[in-house]
Amino acid sequence: MTEQLQEHFDATISRDQRIEPRDWMPDGYRKTLIRQIAQHAHSEIIGMQPEGEWITRAPSLRRKAILFAKVQDEAGHGLYLYSAAETLGADRADLTNRLIEGRQKYSSIFNYPTMSFADVGVIGWFVDGAAICNQVPLCRSSYGPYARAMVRICKEESFHQRQGFELLMTMMRGTEAQREMVQDAVNRWWWPSLMMFGPPDDSSPNSAQSMAWKIKRHSNDELRQRFVDMTVPQADKLGVTLPDPELRWNAERGHHDFGTPDWDELMRVIKGDGPCNDQRMERRRSAHEEGAWVREAATAHAAKQAARAEKGAVA
């Protein structure tokens, strides 16, 4: 029986068709997806923090509205993604606990601090840009609900990225101090952004299976190269320098050569030793704990309502 189901599943994958929630799927496929979607959801929620810090300080009302809306979109993305994970049998409260207890990860990029308002623009340009490179292929991921969530998320991310880039263009046309803020932010975010694509292919343990299942469509190194190739001309247009002395066009390869990110740093940040890991987790944990009485009250009220309705129906 299982053999037949497995054959059917394999055939669906090889025809590039979608797996839907009620279809049979191997346990490994389900677990891998839950882990990946949950980490993605956690990243959206934790990712609200570095930029969210600047909503109250945004230097114009227009920038305040743009940033406020962006951070709100991230909460919305977290919600769709937790819902997509729930179609696989996961439970949002359980996933939240796993995050808070440190049993599931989120993107290491959000463990770096935001030092000036230029960081808001650079996060839009690099971090949303890298997210788009990673996520656009996921719109063709084999799992239907995840792929469909990604379509909407990618549209919003690309909007955020344009807003980030436009902020930087405006700042580069402004004062010398503003141009310095932009360059400083570029210097700080460039390498962590390259790390967003994950470890190099030869040391990425889960990638091969995910590629075979068509959960993932491109390797970490392919995506990283694509990001570098696309970002270089944009940096020129903006008038900033990317902080990599080895960065140059290689006509033979038809790609840019670039330096090696500090993989030890990535490992340290993933293990919890980044500049802001404790702060990010503490904020999420305290929001969750301080909200417990609210969630309990909502549940208690719903139960009372149901009991009153039942009593009313009997009477």
Partner: peptide
């Protein structure tokens, strides 16, 4: 309301409070 962001009791409330603030 902006100060509530990342501190709300549930994600739905993050979205709603941001919406009202906006």
């Amino acid at each position: 309301l902006a100060e509530w962001i990342t501190r709300a009791p549930e994600l739905e409330e993050e979205v709603a409070l941001a919406n009202i603030g906006l």
